[in-house]
């Protein structure tokens, strides 16, 4: 077998009260791979991503990122819940980009990008500022460094949010519908940054409705419906020839 996958998801189940949202999901993301997750609204896509960086706890199943079991330590055949500090340590290596950006409104673009390294990694201000400026340059926002989020367009905010995650040098980036809250004309500038990031070898899990992006950038496409993976495969193949009726119906709706 080849190298261990960067993300290994096994038999993950999650319920909110009476509603079982994830009913046994298993999935691998290879290092440097881009997995696109698609599915109707409410099918559990966000929940799956949030389980990977443990914004949600699992009811059963296991998730490993780069060989580390997320949320637990296995010792003497027993699972021990991680302490908050250990959990934070795991999260440092997993970037997350949200549908609604969630930039820190009281900090400028530059300060947003500096926040992680300065607060979490105790980097020096000068060093963090230098790196933040480079990252803003990379997402095409060098000239917006001193703007507050309220002064930026949605597309610009999302690019700052991506830079903010990248500042932690993560091993894995999670994107939860990063372009769904954007005006149509702003979608492409964010997708361009993500395409560039994929090209640079970042491992990515992307929940999206942008089938063009999935076809072009994705290595693997997963269609989730009703809390299970209904269909998966190489994006070009599954999109050209969807097997399941539900997937076909879904594709008809998003196109």
């Amino acid at each position: 077998m080849m190298a261990e996958p960067m993300v290994k998801i096994r038999s993950v189940r999650k319920r909110f009260g009476p509603l079982e949202v994830l009913k046994g999901i298993s999935l691998d993301v290879l290092a440097g791979g881009v997995v696109c997750v698609v599915g109707p609204s409410g099918s559990g896509k966000s929940t799956l991503l949030r389980c990977v960086n443990r914004l949600e706890t699992l009811d059963s199943g296991r998730i490993w990122v780069d060989g580390d079991l997320i949320g637990y330590r296995e010792q003497d055949e027993k699972l021990h819940m991680l302490r908050p500090a250990e959990l934070s340590r795991q999260r440092q290596d997993i970037g997350m980009v949200f549908q609604r950006f969630h930039l820190f409104p009281h900090r400028t673009a530059l300060e947003n990008v500096m926040e992680g390294p300065v607060t979490v990694k105790r980097a020096s201000k000068a060093e963090a500022r230098q790196r933040a400026a480079e990252l803003l340059e990379r997402v095409g926002l060098a000239d917006r460094a001193h703007h507050y989020p309220a002064q930026l367009s949605g597309g610009q905010q999302q690019r700052v949010a991506i830079a903010r995650s990248l500042a932690m040098s993560p091993k894995l980036m999670l994107f939860d519908e990063p372009t769904s809250a954007l005006d149509p004309e702003l979608v492409q500038e964010v997708l361009a940054v993500m395409r560039d990031l994929a090209g640079s070898g970042m491992t990515m899990m992307v929940v999206t409705h942008e089938m063009g992006f999935a076809r072009e950038v994705g290595d693997h496409l997963v269609f989730i419906d009703g809390g299970v993976i209904v269909e998966q495969g190489h994006p070009r193949e599954v999109l050209a020839d969807p097997r399941h009726e539900r997937f076909r119906t879904f594709l008809g709706q998003v196109r």
């Binding site: 914004l55 999260r91 609604r100 926040e115 992680g116």
Partner: peptide, 11 residues
């Protein structure tokens, strides 16, 4: 969402 964004940075 602010709390979640900060937690995802590892705070």
């Amino acid at each position: 969402g602010q709390r979640e964004a900060a937690e995802s940075l590892g705070m």
